[in-house]
Structure formats: structure tokens, C-alpha cells
Design a binder for these strands. Structure first.
Length: 353
DNA sequence: AAGCCGGGGTG
DNA sequence: CACCCAGGCTT
């Protein structure tokens, strides 16, 4: 098989848990490698196995010693589960990890993928694994769309993974699949020309390598709307308002803003003399980390300040000529809007109110 | 199905 | 900063 042929010269053969490849060491490595990269794990693995070389010694160790050996790896529930599982193996399985899939799955910290990895790597049994690397390889190879954590997609990936299992050399096959994901079929900039699966890789054929696996759907952000005033005076200056309050734009100069067109009209009436009605421009969206803001710009040309702009009680207002805009601290979407307006005004004829 | 655990790397 | 990484457990 192509994967095994690739593995001989290009796979990783020198990882510490491969020598010797005992069930205990495979198990420990699998737990350490959950959500943690190989580079990080190696030193911890060597320290841990030096102190606790086999399952009985782990079971006999104190909680404090186990946690100390784990310290720095994170996800400390993994260490607690590991220790508890070792003790359970002393009670239930004669001091060794079981070779039965369901018995493995019943141990704390061992899920479907880790159980499969232990059986395949330590015992050569035909069980599939499905970790992040393998999900990526399989999703690309077969062109599987959808977020891999979604249950339907995950089912499809497991099914594909199991359909691929060879009859022998399960330890090498399993390692080959992970190595391919880690070194060739990487998340960014995969080395497709070096991939043993490139001939029938669906993602490669369809040019979707970078798109697969489908990314986790972005969290749905709450939506907010506002109206912004683009008021220009006769000389082409725009009215700005200094933002106060707790918002993200506090302290920045921005366009006068109101929750809706009605409130904005009230603002205009209070602070400006304008000729004609507002010209409502197409709304656009700006995404913050915590919400989406839909901005509807309202443009007024030939506006004049009704009051002194430096009124003590009212909002802090000023007129700003286009030449000044680059030096004023403006929120990015406001700057963008002003620039598009500037370009628009210079290329189009006089607006009709 | 979504949140959580946690430290580290990456664009 | 968002997202991801040799996942699994809890709600």
C-alpha cells in the first residue's frame, strides 16, 4: 500500500514511544498527545517513563508525583484519568491494559480513537484512529465537506477510516497516517507534491486542499445596527464627534452615530442646518470580536453647524477637512467609509437632493 | 451539540 | 487575536 511504502523512508521511526512500543508507553503517549504537539510531549514522556516505567509503578505512585510529572502539560484531567485508569487495570485486568476494545473504552480518559490507537499500535489489531491529523488527511483525500466535529461528518470519517484498514502492519499503518498528517498533509501549506496519495486526492483534484477540512463555524455574533451621519459643509469638511462612554471606540473621533434614522434626524435638527433631505447610502457591516455592527450612512451636503461646535454641554464636535483625516484617530470602518465617499464625490457629478 | 480543559504555535 | 493541536468528559 502507498502509505506503507511512503512510511519506510519518510515516516517517523524514532519517537520515544516507539522504542519499545509497549501498550503502556503507547497509552501514555496517546494521552499526552491529546491536544498537545509531539515536540512538546517528547521531553515529558521521557521524564515520566523514567520515573514510572510501567503500569504497576504508575498505579502505585502518589497522586502528587503523577501530577508533578504532568506539570506544564496542561489538561490535568488527563493525568488524573491516567492514574485512575492504571489503578483500575490493577484491579480489573491483572496489572496490564486490556486488549479488548470495550474494556479499554471503559477506562477513564480513553475514548474511541485512543483505544483504537493502543490496539493498533501496541497489538497490531485492525482498529482505526481518528485524531486531528487523520481527520485532515481523510477529509482531503476523500473530499469530505463539513466541520469534522459535526456528528454526521464524524460518522463519515470513521467509516472511511475503518474501510481503509489493512490486514497487517497495523502499527506502521497507524503511524504512517498520523505522520502523513503531521509532516505532509499539514493544516497550512501542505506538501502535496510529496504526498503518496496525491493521485486520487479529491481535495487536490478539485483545488480545495486549503479549504478542507471545513473550519469550525464561527460563533454567531449578536447583531447591532446604527445610523451614521456623513455631514459635509460647503468646503467639503465632514462633521466628526468624539466618542465617549465605555465602548470600543472610546476616545476616537468618529462620525456622529445614532441607534436609528429617527434618532439621527433629531441629532441633525439639534446641531445642524441642512438643505434638503438625507441621502441614505447602502448599509455595510463591520465585525467586532463580540458583535456585528450594521452601519447605515446618512449623507448631508451643504450643512452648517447650528451651534458652536465646542458647546460645553453637547457632544464634542468638529469639522475635519479630507487632508486632516489621515492624522485623526478614526475607527477603521469610518475611515473606509470616508475614503469611499471621497472617491465617490470626486468621480461623480453633483448629487441631486 | 456545545462548553470545558490549558499551554503552545501559527497566520 | 482566532484558530488549531495524536480528545475526552460533562452538561
Amino acid at each position: 500500500m502507498r502509505l506503507l511504502d511512503w512510511f519506510e523512508p519518510h515516516g517517523r521511526h524514532d519517537l520515544p514511544w516507539q522504542h519499545p512500543r509497549s501498550a503502556y508507553r503507547v497509552w501514555l503517549s496517546e494521552i499526552m498527545l491529546q491536544q498537545t504537539q509531539v515536540q512538546t510531549v517528547i521531553a515529558y514522556f521521557e521524564r515520566f517513563t523514567a520515573a514510572l516505567p510501567d503500569l504497576p509503578s504508575l498505579a502505585a505512585a502518589s497522586h502528587d508525583e503523577v501530577m508533578a510529572l504532568w506539570s506544564g502539560l496542561g489538561y490535568y484531567a488527563r493525568a488524573r484519568n491516567l492514574h485512575a485508569a492504571a489503578k483500575l487495570c490493577m484491579e480489573r485486568h491483572g496489572g496490564a491494559l486490556p486488549t479488548d476494545f470495550d474494556a479499554l473504552l471503559a477506562l477513564p480518559g480513553i475514548g474511541r480513537s485512543t483505544a483504537g490507537a493502543i490496539l493498533a499500535q501496541a497489538h497490531g489489531l485492525a482498529f482505526a484512529i481518528l485524531d486531528g491529523n487523520v481527520k485532515r488527511v481523510l477529509a482531503r483525500w476523500r473530499g469530505i465537506d463539513g466541520w469534522p466535529a459535526a456528528s454526521a461528518v464524524e460518522r463519515e470519517l470513521w467509516q472511511f477510516a475503518e474501510s481503509l484498514l489493512p490486514n497487517d502492519r497495523l502499527p506502521d499503518y497507524t503511524q504512517a497516517l498520523m505522520d502523513l498528517g503531521a509532516t505532509v498533509c499539514t493544516r497550512t501549506r501542505p506538501a502535496c507534491p510529496r504526498c503518496p496519495l496525491r493521485q486520487d486526492c479529491v481535495a487536490r483534484r478539485e483545488g480545495r486542499v486549503e479549504q478542507l477540512p471545513t473550519r469550525k463555524p464561527a460563533k454567531i455574533l449578536p447583531r447591532r445596527e446604527c445610523a451614521m451621519l456623513l455631514a459635509f459643509d460647503e468646503s467639503g469638511r465632514v462633521l466628526l464627534q468624539k466618542r465617549g462612554g465605555p465602548g470600543v471606540w472610546n476616545g476616537l473621533w468618529s462620525l456622529p452615530e445614532a441607534p436609528d434614522a429617527y434618532s439621527l434626524a433629531a441629532f441633525i435638527q439639534r446641531h445642524l442646518r441642512t438643505r434638503g433631505a438625507a441621502h441614505v447610502l447602502p448599509a455595510f457591516e463591520h465585525v467586532f470580536s463580540h458583535y456585528r455592527l450594521t452601519i447605515t450612512p446618512h449623507r448631508h451636503s451643504a450643512a452648517q453647524a447650528r451651534l458652536r461646535v465646542a458647546d460645553n454641554n453637547g457632544p464634542e464636535l468638529r469639522w475635519a477637512a479630507p487632508a486632516e483625516w489621515p492624522d485623526i484617530g478614526l475607527p477603521a470602518p469610518v475611515r473606509q467609509l470616508l475614503q469611499s465617499q471621497c472617491a465617490h464625490q470626486s468621480t461623480s457629478s453633483e448629487e441631486t437632493p
